[in-house]
Design a binder for these strands. Structure first.
Lengths: 143, 143
DNA sequence: TATTGTTATACTCTATAACTATA
DNA sequence: TATAGTTATAGAGTATAACAATA
């Protein structure tokens, strides 16, 4: 195999390509960092949203994160099996479930956040602290 | 369902989250824009690389794009069935295949590029032209 | 021994559709 | 009729392992 680098050609003109490459780097590092607790990025986002917004429905959480309700239902089952998330009946609407972190879930999340912070620090170092800050400010507008 | 927006909590501190949201927006728009020709982002990247670097092996192309060789093999079969990619024997190494765009593939790629450019213009408008340029310059470093 | 390409498996994520039970 | 949650299926992408042919 010839080992010289290839030219990216027209790919050089596509922001999506570079966005994807960095995003993959970030997720792979996150997954590696959180591997001891077996937490995936999407699960982490759900845990944080429920922590910050206890008692909200699956539909509301799903819409906030852009997670399809069918996918969220299965993910929540898994989180319920691990006793991290509890679903309670909602008094005003019998169709919906109110989501809460269990005590055990809160305890686990504390550890999870610690590992996630280490990952974030590594990312900040990877892109440079000032770029990390600027990218955050810019990209936040499209979340 | 209460419709007020939820707070993102600690998610606000993670660049990966916002990176992922914008990346999803970009890919979804790309897939929508290229739907008439049924081309996915990964396929498009392979076509561009082969166009810009004719005659290289699957291993080389895969390494450049970060696509796993098993995945690339299946993707190339699909592109071969569509008569867009041709695989020739490599004289110096009987194990490897040299990849080329067929005449039909080059013709299809011209149309594909046209749609991809429209998508890119929409993205530039979405994030703002100056940010598009700056993001491109920054993110290119981590590809 | 290592590499190239291939096939196979498993898991995650995305996108649907269909279903129930409520509203 | 619309919505909340569930189950199911299909396809893409990712991560492995194992294999034959070749280096």
């Amino acid at each position: 195999m010839r080992t010289e680098k290839l030219t990216l050609g027209q790919l050089n003109r596509h922001l999506g390509y570079f966005l994807r490459r960095l995003q993959l780097w970030v997720f792979q590092d996150f997954i590696r960092a959180l591997a001891p607790l077996k937490v995936r990025p999407a699960q982490y986002s759900v845990l944080l949203i429920v922590e910050a917004n206890p008692g909200r429905s699956q539909a509301t959480v799903g819409k906030t994160l852009g997670i399809e309700r069918a996918r969220l239902a299965r993910m929540l089952h898994a989180l319920e099996r691990r006793k991290w998330i509890a679903r309670h009946a909602n008094g005003s609407d019998a169709r919906s479930h109110s989501l809460y972190l269990t005590a055990q879930g809160a305890k686990a999340l504390a550890k999870i956040k610690c590992l996630a912070e280490q990952h974030e620090a590594k990312l900040a170092e990877h892109v440079g602290p000032s770029r990390h800050k600027q990218l955050m400010a810019w990209l936040r507008e499209y979340g």
